[in-house]
Design a protein around this nucleic acid. Sequence first.
RNA 1: GGGAAAGUCGCAUAGUGGCAAUUGCAACAGACUGUAAAUCUGUCCUCUUCGGAGUUCGGUGGUUCGAGUCCACCCUUUCCCA
Length: 376
Amino acid sequence: MEFKLNSISPDCKARAGVIKTAHGEIETPIFMPVGTVGSVKGVDVNILKNEINAQIILGNTYHLYLRPGTDIIQQAGGIQKFNSWNKPMLTDSGGFQVYSLGKIRKITNEGCTFRSHIDGSLHKFTPENVIDTQRKIGADIMMAFDECTPYPCDYKYAQNSLKITSQWLKRCVNRFENTTPIYGYHQSLFPIVQGSVYNDLRKQACENVMQYDMDGFALGGLSVGEPTEKMYEITNLCTDILPKEKPRYLMGVGTPQNILEGIALGIDMFDCVMPTRNGRNAMLFTSEGTMNMRNKKWANDFSPIDESGTASVDTLYTKAYLRHLFISQEILALEIASIHNLAFYLWLVKQARKHIIDGDFYSWKNEMVEKLGRRL
RNA sequence: GGGAAAGUCGCAUAGUGGCAAUUGCAACAGACUGUAAAUCUGUCCUCUUCGGAGUUCGGUGGUUCGAGUCCACCCUUUCCCA
């Protein structure tokens, strides 16, 4: 994998670059739609490519391991063939499930045992088998196995968790370096910086991950409930330390505002379930603010969903119709909202990139953030 | 004409002497950040300084300390027999 920086903002840390992977190029900063089980919920691959202009999507090791299982994916020739996406993919390691499945998992130094959320069966994830599984899934970017710490998280817990995550990283890297891709193309491994909201732990975590010459670095354990300012503060601290010539990925972030601020702080990659999940729950993000499409005020608003939207659904359908679909619990509502939100997110990062290259990102960003926070 | 059953907060339901009154739907809001989420939460008779206060269960009377619940009559609806 290659990363080339095209330009850096004069008045903040925003960067525009290009990541080259075996499945194609990714222009950064980029938002990566989440497709946990190998599918971006409610959105077909053609729409993802042609309407949304997605360049890379996520999959999840834990979910794909449980279903359909790595055998099937291997028989298909890797995840990009299995889901017909055939473009860059990234798999999360299951580290987030260490956090989100808190009640049905147990962490040890060795790894983490999970109860399947599907049938309750017991499964053990270790840094080694998580790398093996990600090799079998075949994403271009694999994530190290970590513990995404909860918030609030006391210092002692964060410190101990970071110790485990660091040990796991060492084992992940070791396994990564002693295995080869199954499908003949290069796969990268991104370490994850943890350390909760503690500056010294984060600094220590950054220095720890930097000892490995990996293709990119991620910030994890943020946007889990901490104050937004804290998230920015930690992000800023980390991007000051992490190597400039490698992509930085802020995991699980976030709102459109979070993404623009993240870009200003030197982040290149983002992913979040928000555009799809909130879309399914009737929330639309637009350049003028957010809308709850279930609200009565849209009942007879026959204006386009988003006049300035880039997806065809934005001008094809009206707000009143979309509200009707949500109220009637029609599956089409979820699809339209997901397409709109993802197209908006991808439009947003593309604009950000353009303004970074043009050199006026910072002022544009401030203007946008103000608008994005509105409630329509 | 004769007989039977039933009328509860938008709709549908629960309730057979201590209830502002069950549940579902609908309605109206809110939440959602590396997806156990097409999910979850709240409001849903009126007013409220959120402590409460005031009016309710087809209607009118009555029994009772107390009635959606018991009694009488009336009104309405449904079904059955002529």
